[in-house]
Design a protein around this nucleic acid. Sequence first.
RNA 1: GGAGAGAUGGGUGAGUGGCUGAAACCAACAGUUUGCUAAACUGUCGUACGGGAUUAACUGUACCGGGGGUUCGAAUCCCCCUCUCUCCGCCA
Length: 424
Amino acid sequence: MLNLKFIQENKETVIRKLAVKNFDAKDLVEKIILLDNERKNIQREADDKQAEMNTISKQIGQLMKEGKREEAETARANTSRLKEEIATLNTRHGETVAELDKLIVRLPNLPNDIVPPGKSDADNVIVKISENVPAHEEGQLPHWDLAKKYKLIDFEVGVKITGAGFPVYKGLGARLQRALINFFLEENIKAGYEEVMPPLVVNEDSGFGTGQLPDKDGQMYYVNEDKLYLIPTAEVPVTNLYRDMIVDAEQLPIKNTAYTACFRREAGSYGKDVRGLNRLHQFDKVEIVQISRPEVSYEALDGMVKHVEGLLIKLGLPYRIVRLCGGDLSFTSALTYDFEVYSKAQDRWLEVSSVSNFEEYQANRLKLRFREKGEKKTTMVHTLNGSSLALPRIVAALLENNQCPEGIRVPEVLQDFMGTDMIK
RNA sequence: GGAGAGAUGGGUGAGUGGCUGAAACCAACAGUUUGCUAAACUGUCGUACGGGAUUAACUGUACCGGGGGUUCGAAUCCCCCUCUCUCCGCCA
């Protein structure tokens, strides 16, 4: 969430920048500022009265000790009115804060200045296209047919045991999952990311910390009995590792990578978007997370983009990198680069990674700060994350782009993990 | 799931109604001393939200797992919740 003080001092900037996200913040910001001022006034009044009360209480204690019962009784008689006033003020204060909290989480993160304006993904800016993008060919099989032909993925049995969007990987298909996970993790570790293996379900505080709640409540699976959410991405448990912490400056940057299954309800999706592996309710993803000093977070972002690009190059997949426009940018992100791989048979670009800088938006919610050595004051960190990578569409692109008369060519970097150079 | 014990600052741990935002020790940080290291000594050493000329000194309030209550006054008494530990049961 945005910082209250910042909103107070930069009202026009907030409104102007959120307009890039096509978010009309004017009324909300006005209301927030009004409420915040009210909150301060109430607090001042309540604090003063409480201070008065504390003084009287101390006096009573002193008088009692000295045996001056009469005077103590007199002092006590004066407290009841004060007590009531404090109670009233505290109630109002609580209500104001609650209202303020409710409003402030409705403000999205401010986009970075280089975020292009735009309404939808059509307005995203392509910043790079790899040179190996093939031409669309007729007669190529889409991955769902290839998966069937080589007995790699069984969508039907997944429907039987769970439902649509829960495929079952079999044989070399299952092994390909494992190969990709291992490959990604190894590469990430080589790049200095420490591997963690977090829980796949999280509590409400964690969902709030990274911004999935309250914004995307309906997109997560919820375990009612225990009030837990199935994670939509490893970002949630991994970033929340550092919730409510003050880290030392020399610990930064913190770099973690994690493989997890991800669960998404994807309510409202349909059609060719959900065909085959294009959109699933459960899928596997390796994630990278960085916690960075604010002044270098954009260098960190560039580094992450380079790293993810390196993975796609090693896999030999045709890709492009796009900078998301304001309208396509997520609620919590300040700047996002999406990676898309080209799928020859579908003649489509498939999103396989999203690398974002959240600046202090998540840190504010997480209460994640750092402290300079020897200094007293704390500063919010910047948090970043990216997929490196999400498996299903990588698999789709690999199958489709690497199909040949003999079978499906396995990229060299995966051959050891796969135990073969050709899926037949 | 059953029974019991517990939850205090970065850590250990004292504190059963006012003198406690919290002893002591450890860790950490700054400094003194020593030829270096170590040791010793001195000092600092929670967070949030306010006030203060909004990067001051200083200062108010709140916070001892979370929420509510009793009281002029609660870390301390009462109630509810959560979590942790031990034992039993079940079990990958």
